[in-house]
Amino acid sequence: MSTVLVKTYAPPPFCEREILRYAGCKGTDETLSALLQACLDEVKDKLVYKVCYIELPVRITDGLCDFSAFSVRSKHLAKNLRGTERAIVFAATVGVEIDRLIAKYGRLAPSKALLMQAIGAERIEALCDAFCADMEGETRGRLKPRFSAGYGDLPLEAQREIIALLDCAKKIGVCLNESLLMSPSKSVTAFVGIDDNGGTVYEANGRKCAACDKNDCDFRREI
């Protein structure tokens, strides 16, 4: 398959615990919960859940990951994709409205901006999880953990090729700015290896942190 396809998802269930984690809270109280609820009510119907993706063959030689349409040099990605012969490259976004809300409250009520930002982070992660779970069914293979530009030695510059390859601006409205940031900001691009030889079942939140060696991260999950 060499076509970029687009999928739109129904909103995945919200996880308030995750949102609070992204907001830097290890607990909550009545006022904070009420504020979060108000933010959730405001944001609920304003998001989209869109993904565009392509399945590509993978050939790894000496740290070079060759996807035939393009290739990148990254030892860490090569390690991540080891043992796979195909991979999905995807871009996902929850749309521009969350940026509007973050910008609005950034000016008027930073506490809400912070929560909106956390909601956006939780939403885009939830969308990526929903997409990967869906793909696991569709590709009839086990999916490796997602790997994005900027992880390990995979340079952020790879974003240019990923965004162009997926025709992101047209397919789902995701653009890249001069600093290689995506707009809308709550967007993700990633490689996901498809392991046709079994492996573990795709776990939404479970192994994300365990697989990362940045042990001093404020957001690290305590499993």
Partner: peptide, 11 residues
């Protein structure tokens, strides 16, 4: 006190 709470007080 967590950051959102600090901000609510600041607002």
């Amino acid at each position: 006190v967590y950051l959102p709470q600090l901000l609510m007080s600041a607002e």
